[in-house]
Amino acid sequence: EKSLIASTLASASPEEQKIMLGEWLFPLIQAMNPTLASKITGMLLEMDNSELLHMLESPESLRSKVDEAVAVLQACQAQQEAQQEKAI
């Protein structure tokens, strides 16, 4: 399955590669965090394709990246809320 993923990616344009990786990662991320899945996927897609491939192959590394992404998103959200309170 690994080589199938790699060879499918190799024949695609950089844009198509990101879309494919997103389509593959999204359901896995959704299973871990249904609420933030779309944001987490968007965030992870900013990483190198080779790292994204590694996450597809290793559920453990995917989980740790998803945890990191959730922490960043929550910190970001808290900051925005603090700024909004200041503005009011």
Partner: peptide, 26 residues
Amino acid sequence: SNGSSINWPPEFHPGVPWKGLQNIDP
């Protein structure tokens, strides 16, 4: 003070064009 971070990260939805693609150099 800058509101640019509010739209970050670009959300990914299956079957929908992903906004983050604008940041990828061919």
